[in-house]
């Protein structure tokens, strides 16, 4: 571990900029370019960092007479001030996009993105502890910063992070005990991650119809969620144009609509139920991971008042 006296983020950002990285830091809504930032608030951003690896719109190919390949995005980016939950979520997204047939667009961005996380200040909506995370978890980050008063402790997590740090002046080694700088947080919300058997039993329960009353089938929870990855592919332009992919949401009413007009999830409660089962049961079956990091954005910003912790507590009853 290293320690740095003073504002490390500024030093790091300037160093990265000098190495041709585009540096992003959080503001209240999402990550913005370092040059435009006025200050760097400590809380969660609304949009997670998923948009840097899987942008909301991504052009796949262009077509006209025939197809033209679109050059892959090799821009070097550094995200400074990422929350531990978002960094963990990136490792989950890797399981989808880098396993099996590899997605070259995602992979190029992933290789060229440096993730510098920082200890966060959880709010009343967070429940990352239920999944083994804490405000100090380093999983998924390249470098981890712990800000304590006037100094910053720096943990190099990957070799890439180490390489960057090795070229920065003013870093001093320290063997301070981690437990003296880590602060425990009392999370008010909890979820039981071993809920798979209960979910299997409760599939046909009437609770789903009752719970989905407040859902308005918008896409807010899925778009803000750092681990949701569904996308749609569309062609824009009849004779010439481009084919792009865009974020999609399993909560939209037409998500499963087939050409024959059959819609397996026509009702709101079927779609809502599917979201929970997908994140807590089906992904466990196919990838061995729960696709939730406990960031709580879906609860905080749901316009209708759906609360994932409340619903999972009811599943267990």
């Amino acid at each position: 571990m290293f320690v740095y006296e003073g504002e490390f983020i500024k030093t790091l950002a300037e160093k990265l900029i000098s190495e041709d990285y585009r540096v992003y830091v959080p503001d209240s809504r999402s990550f913005i370019e370092y040059e435009k930032a006025k200050d760097i608030p400590k809380g969660k951003t609304r949009k997670s960092i998923k948009e840097f690896l899987l942008p909301q719109n991504e052009v796949l190919i262009r077509y006209g007479k025939w197809i033209e390949e679109v050059p892959l995005d090799r821009e070097k980016r550094a995200l400074i001030g990422v929350n531990p939950c978002d960094a963990k979520a990136v490792t989950l997204l890797d399981k989808i996009y880098l396993e099996g047939l590899m997605d070259p667009y995602y992979q190029t961005r992933r290789e060229n993105t440096l993730i510098v996380s920082r200890n966060c200040e959880p709010n009343n909506y967070c429940f990352c502890e239920s999944f083994g995370l804490t405000p100090f978890s380093t999983e998924g980050s390249d470098i981890f910063l712990i800000e304590k008063g006037e100094r910053t402790y720096i943990i190099p997590v990957t070799s890439r992070g180490e390489k960057i740090l090795s070229s920065i002046d003013g870093l001093m080694n320290t063997d301070v005990d981690e437990s003296s700088i880590i602060v425990q947080h009392n999370f008010s919300r909890k979820v039981n991650p071993d809920i798979q058997d209960e979910l299997r039993k409760k599939f046909d329960d009437e609770m789903w119809k009752r719970i989905s009353l407040n859902c308005i089938s918008c896409g807010t929870c899925t778009f803000l969620c750092p681990t949701c990855f569904c996308f749609d592919m569309l062609d824009e332009g009849e004779k010439e144009g481009f084919r792009y992919r865009a974020w999609d949401s399993c909560q939209f009413p037409l998500y499963t609509l087939e050409s024959s007009s059959h819609n397996p999830r026509r009702e709101k409660w079927q779609r809502l139920r599917n979201r929970f089962y997908d994140k807590f049961l089906y992904t466990v079956e196919s990838k061995g991971e729960i696709f939730c990091v406990g960031c709580g954005r879906c609860i905080e910003f749901c316009p209708g008042g759906i609360d994932i912790t409340e619903i999972l507590a009811e599943v267990e009853k």
């Binding site: 099996g100 997605d103 569904c230 996308f231 592919m233 079956e285």
Partner: peptide
């Protein structure tokens, strides 16, 4: 089995029937 498919390579998640991807 069939489902609405988009990417066809197990990435977009649309054709999933529970834990199985119809395309994969």
């Amino acid at each position: 089995l069939e489902r609405r498919m988009k990417c066809g390579i197990g990435k977009c998640g649309r054709c999933r029937i529970e834990s199985k991807y119809v395309c994969r």
